[in-house]
Write a protein that binds this DNA or RNA. Structure first.
Length: 200
DNA sequence: ACAACGATACCCT
DNA sequence: GGGTATCGTTGTT
């Protein structure tokens, strides 16, 4: 896979659609992070949808606060939140003020693998980006990046793949939540060895 | 001021 | 598969 260029960047209209659809369509897309004058990133293999309405597992479920404000920003905003002394990253979806987002849970590492190994203090390729907090650590993303515009930022963006690769999507229940556990809002690329856990 | 908890991951058995 | 480190956020006194 060739490194994407700025013309491959996903436009705001991509994010300004139903969250479940965006979560599925983000599979196979590329996530790129500029770090120390090089690019780190790879291909998205696992996502979860967090909805604006009737979703008690969503951070937006009890309204906007200072800490979740960027989840209510325009589509294409990055929402980074802290959990268990780590971080997870989301792409905001639907119209501004809706409060919906897609959690990016895992990528297949493609570029800057040595930089990821350094950031993660982990040699095993399979354990570099296999989970949302691992992914943030590998890409050097934390709360400093919360609220940036993925459709314009110079150092962090999402892009369409530069070569066509077919994949099959499967759904699953979401991981690590205590409410709305029955909903099948987790999406994976079938047979990818880089997902955090198999579908349930 | 303080206690409880979480969209986690690591380490151990 | 289970226990837990670790810390920001939130809800309770």
């Amino acid at each position: 896979m060739k490194l994407p260029s700025s013309s491959d960047r996903l436009p705001r209209a991509f994010y300004d659609r139903e969250t479940e659809l965006v979560a599925q369509e983000l599979l196979g897309k590329l996530l790129l992070r500029r770090w120390n004058r090089t690019w780190i990133g790879g291909c998205i293999v696992e996502t979860e949808a967090y909805l604006a309405e009737n979703d008690l597992a969503s951070h937006s479920a009890r309204g906007m606060t200072n800490s979740n404000a960027s989840m209510f920003g325009p589509p294409g905003t990055l929402y980074v939140y802290p959990i268990h002394a780590k971080y997870c990253l989301n792409a905001v979806t639907e119209a501004e003020q809706r409060g919906a987002a897609v959690l990016i849970r895992a990528i297949e590492p493609l570029w800057g693998i040595e930089a990821m190994r350094t950031a993660r203090r982990q040699e095993d390729l399979r354990r570099l980006t296999r989970g949302p907090a691992m992914l943030c650590q590998a890409l050097n993303v934390d709360r400093q990046q919360d609220g940036i515009d993925l459709t314009a930022d110079k150092a962090l963006f999402l892009a369409k793949p530069t070569e066509s690769v077919s994949h099959e999507i499967i759904d699953s229940v979401r991981i690590g939540i205590s409410r709305s556990q029955h909903r099948r809002l987790r999406f994976l690329i079938k047979d990818s060895p880089f997902v955090s856990r198999p579908a349930q």
